[in-house]
Design a protein around this nucleic acid. Structure first.
Lengths: 192, 192
DNA sequence: TTTTGTATTTGAATGTCACTCATAATTTTT
DNA sequence: AAAAATTATGAGTGACATTCAAATACAAAA
């Protein structure tokens, strides 16, 4: 297994998917940009979906790493969750192409939506629940909220905001601002 | 424009999409189930995506209607938001096929994700922000939170939970329970 | 009723890919 | 350097979505 060639194909795929979208991207074009024949692609990946999912799994590694390190530096659970929220949105703002791939294109892959047990996806979400559990243990957070549900709530909120920003042509909404608002709502609630 | 035939095709499409998924569904099969020729489908819809989006737009009408009526009966803004949350999850539980279509298949449509200015989608989300604005006006909710961001936070959370439930084979998680948790987190925050 | 005109329907044909596989090129082993 | 094993190639195949020339149904006029 030639790792160099595999990586070349993945890098080409990132470009092509970002430019044309997953659906319109042609495997032939990915191969061309990677400097290999169409068939070669299928020696390294089982199909087009597999290319996309592989991009996800591999791009998530440094993202998860980075996020975990950042949270390590924070003392309270609240600070950790705040760091997750701002960190996620900063990532979306600074790497919009990658964000578009992970947020939008990935969801068009049938294989991803159904039956995909993405380890990296789970790992990313678990950063949230771990911080939350810490907060429950040390008395910062309410005990009656289930960590598994909480991580879905927070991630769902973040994801929706990110997606909207990525989709909006103008991108006039300030993501820093959105981060503050999410923090306020989720951590403090909306009651006056 | 034969409305009867159009409806027949849409009904057939709902069945086929629910059974085979959007991606695997064949237009020929939809036409067969509707009792028309393949080409006829294209007299009523511009393409496969258009069929799916039309289903969405039309199925959303009674859902939106029903939701608005329910909220009308509630007095406080908090009660309205609670009703929205439980209403949405009840719908997901009681019409899982339709939920799967609206939550999962729809997002695999490239046309829907990009550039789709879904009126009905917006209308549904706006129910949230209207209730929220009411709460801000009458002093129930904090004034510093932007209604547009709030509706995305709440819908994102709801959607994530719904999607997970729909995807999970076992469906062992109780959606009633999830509703309570979302209400607690979003309305009251997580601080102890 | 027949004819002429119009709107609707049909399904075979077309075009576009994802994916395969027989052949070729390259590398490794003997 | 020949044989064996591995890797790469790209023309070919099959599966649809979509189209469109021809057929059919329908309606209005004669």
């Amino acid at each position: 297994m030639d790792t160099v060639k595999r990586t070349k194909i993945l890098q080409a795929a990132i470009k092509v998917f970002a430019r044309d979208g997953f659906f319109n991207a042609k495997v032939e074009e990915i191969a061309r940009q990677a400097g290999v024949a169409t068939g070669t692609t299928y020696l390294y990946f089982t199909n087009k979906d597999d290319i996309l999912i592989s991009i996800f799994e591999e791009e998530m590694v440094p993202i998860i790493d980075n996020m975990k390190n950042n949270l390590l530096r924070k003392k309270t659970a609240r600070e950790k969750l705040e760091a997750f929220i701002t960190g996620h949105l900063t990532m979306v703002r600074e790497k919009p192409d990658m964000a578009q791939l992970l947020e939008l294109e990935l969801r068009q892959s049938s294989k991803f939506i159904h039956g995909y047990n993405g380890t990296k996806y789970k790992e990313y979400l678990n950063i949230i629940s771990e911080a939350f559990i810490l907060g429950q243990t040390n008395g910062e957070f309410k005990k009656e909220i289930h960590p598994t549900i909480f991580k879905q709530i927070l991630f769902g909120a973040l994801d929706q905001i990110s997606m909207n920003w990525t989709l909006s042509k103008s991108r006039k909404i300030d993501l820093e601002d959105s981060a503050d608002q999410i923090i306020k709502v989720i951590l403090d609630g909306i009651a006056a």
